[in-house]
């Protein structure tokens, strides 16, 4: 007799649990306010990434096309997979001395893992993370970027 009751109690418990599940999905079906889909290409204009978002490594330039990079190469050595290459050159100063300044700060976005060590370790805070994230290109050589803008120079106002 007890197995008889167990048969029916199992049946009703099972049906009840199924109905509870269906109530949840049914509720979501009738509450379109809960939709979480991001309409990506349409919302491009009003989309705002977080300030700290690691989209790509950039070099900060001020309005006079000047940056802080001294070409010391700490970012190059701290990068775990060789995404950064520093090519420096020697220029003649007016007083006859020669100085080593940065020629090209080459950044291979295709190899970067966004670990953030270059930005963290930069002693002169020349590097930062940019918020741009649409990096898709048809040719991967386009991912090799030169971070210092053409014709840029170092900000001299920092006293050693």
């Amino acid at each position: 007799m007890s197995s008889f009751f167990k048969y029916f109690s199992d049946l009703f418990k099972g049906v009840k649990s199924l109905l509870k599940g269906m109530a949840v999905t049914n509720r979501y079906f009738f509450s379109p306010g809960e939709i979480v889909t991001e309409q990506y290409p349409e919302n491009r204009n009003k989309m705002k990434m977080y300030d700290r978002f690691k989209g790509e490594v950039i070099m900060i330039h001020n309005e006079h096309n000047q940056h802080h990079c001294t070409g010391c190469g700490i970012c190059e050595t701290s990068c775990p997979n060789g995404s950064i290459e520093i090519i420096s050159k020697r220029i003649d100063l007016p007083d006859g001395k020669k100085e080593r300044v940065i020629d090209k700060h080459i950044y291979h976005l295709g190899m970067c893992t966004f670990c953030g060590l270059c930005v963290k370790n930069c002693p002169s805070h020349a590097l930062a993370f940019g918020q741009r994230f649409e990096h898709a290109v048809y040719d991967r050589t386009k991912l090799n970027k030169i971070l210092n803008h053409p014709g840029s120079s170092i900000i001299k106002d920092i006293e050693e």
């Binding site: 977080y50 893992t113 966004f114 953030g116 993370f129």
Partner: peptide, 20 residues
Amino acid sequence: EETTGARFLQSYYTPGGLMQ
């Protein structure tokens, strides 16, 4: 993403503390 800058592979901890 707001704190570490990444959603998935954050690399947020660093020996001795945190990145930021």
